[in-house]
Amino acid sequence: MPQVTLTVNEKPIAAEVEGRTLLVQLLRDTLGLTGTHVGCDTSQCGACTVHVNGRSVKSCCMLAVQAEGARVTTIEGVSDGQTLHPMQAAFRECHGLQCGFCTPGMIMSAIDMVKHHPDPDEQTVRKWLDGNLCRCTGYHNIVKAIRAGAAAMKAKTRENVA
């Protein structure tokens, strides 16, 4: 079976996988990182979104072996110890989640969005979320959360610079 070596949440990983093993299966089944969820089989729902080399990627449509040498971040890797990432905190503060199943993918997608759109308006957020489905919230509070999270990320960057 093929070997794959990569970094997941800043930890070096070496694993044996089948050629057909998906990145999401490696994360969930081999590494026990069950915060990354699977909600469909056509790469539509985005519940499995993680960061691969800093970009949001649906981990259900990437083979584990394709992540060779990559730096992967999952929802478990975004908070700073006990302190939530500003986007995680914004989702809680704005009630941007209900059942929580789409939430990790939403947060991972949102963090990447802010890199591209540091100050997104409502339409930008709604458009970016094209690849993330939520059945609970009607997106209203997710949009609110992402805009608040973006503002908090900006403020934090400023704080760090100062």
Binding site: T34, I75, E76, F91, L97, G100, F101
Partner: peptide
């Protein structure tokens, strides 16, 4: 009140 359950869900620590 902000939700108690979110503490685990936003961290990917839900148990489905």
């Amino acid at each position: 009140v902000r939700r108690t359950e979110d503490a685990r869900f936003v961290r990917g620590k839900g148990r489905y």
